[in-house]
Design a protein around this nucleic acid. Sequence first.
RNA 1: GGAAGGGUGUCCGAGUGGUUUAAGGAAACGGUCUUGAAAACCGUCGUGCCGGCAACGGUACCGAGGGUUCGAAUCCCUCCCCUUCCGCCA
Length: 431
Amino acid sequence: MIDIQLVRDNPEFVKEKATQKGYEVDIDRLLQLDNDRKELLQTVESLRARRNEISESMKGGKPADELIEEGRLLKVELSEREGYLEATESEWLELLKSVPNMPLDVVPVGSTEDENVVVKTWGDKPQFNFEIKNHAEIAEAKGWLDKDRGAKIAGSRFVYLKGDLVRLEMALWQFGVDVAGSESTLQRLIAENNLNLSSKPFMPVLPPAVAKKEIFEATGRLNKEEQTYKIEDEDLWLNASAEHTIAPMYYKEILDEAELPLRYIGYTTAFRREAGTYGKDTEGFLRLHQFNKLEMESFTDAQTSLDEHLLMVAIQEHLMQQLGLPYQVLEKCTADIGRPNAKGVDIEVWLPGQDRYRETHTADYISDFQTRSMQTKVRKNDGTLELAHTNDATAFSQRPLIGIIENFQTAEGDVIIPDVLRPYMGGREKI
RNA sequence: GGAAGGGUGUCCGAGUGGUUUAAGGAAACGGUCUUGAAAACCGUCGUGCCGGCAACGGUACCGAGGGUUCGAAUCCCUCCCCUUCCGCCA
């Protein structure tokens, strides 16, 4: 959530930025509640002060009847006022939580994803001298993809992936972990992009794939419950990204500045209900209820978080370049960056089979929006305390596999394996 | 799943109704001493919220949430988690 102080100090700014992101929040009502809350709080606290005073005066002595009687009356009044305060505060908090993070000035203002801005394209779209196929056709012909049986067992948008495609996927995870774990690679990317950052490598992590509701609420990621699967009879929800269970790792903890940045590259299976996408992207495995993803997550201080975000984008580009996949980079507009984001970048791979770019990566600049509700703080070297910042970004999902299949297909219906993945594939050149 | 014991500040740990504004120790930070360091000694040392320019004052927080009481870390209830033993099992 955002800082209530920002709303108090600059309500017009908050209104404007929220509107840019397409959120309707009643800021005036929030400020009204904020005032009500303050007044009630002061009343309650002075009643409590009197209660403590009475209690204090009885220490060690014989309780005086008048004071006990006053305490009794006080208790009744206090309980009534506390009721009002609690009601006001919970409405206040709910409204405050509904305020989106403020987009940075560099974020293009737009009302639909069509207004995202292409800031870079990389690589040449491949030319084919044969009739090309899309990834679904190739995968099905190769026996890599079985949607019918997936549907029989778990329903639509669940699939069996099989054979060499699975080997290729696993190669992708290993490659991603190796790149993000390479200090020299990070060093080079940091230098090339003029970033002022540590080259500490990303530590691989296998986090839980489920979390309690309290945790999802703190990360601001359960804003769309209709997208999240719940486990029946348990207070547990399936994560929709490793980010959902890595970001809250330091829930209610204080980090030392000296140990920052904390960088993780985590792998989990992700689950998404994909409500509202019926009939969209039903071919192949572009959009599934269950997919695998390797995700970067960093905890930094406020001073380095924006550079950290840019580093993550640089890593993403590096990964795509190493695979040789043509892509474009989008600076997402205010409507598309998402509620917790202050900035967001997407990378889209060129898909010859669809004759268009499709999203493979997202990088989220969250600033202190998550950590304020997660209470993850940093003890600075000078002893002061501030909120930590979080960043997250895709390293690889399964979608780059689609890019590989479509861009590197041959007339024979095979797929050429990118050079960098061959060491993980027993040296094979194609599948 | 069954039984027992526990969850206290950055860490360890005392505390079973009002002498606790959470003892004591460690770590950390500042200082004295020292050629320097260590040791010793002195001092500082939780977080949120509200008020205040500030100094500071008030309030809440001892796993979470309720309850009893004039008053709860302490008593009661529910839940969560951890440890040990048993059972089961990748």
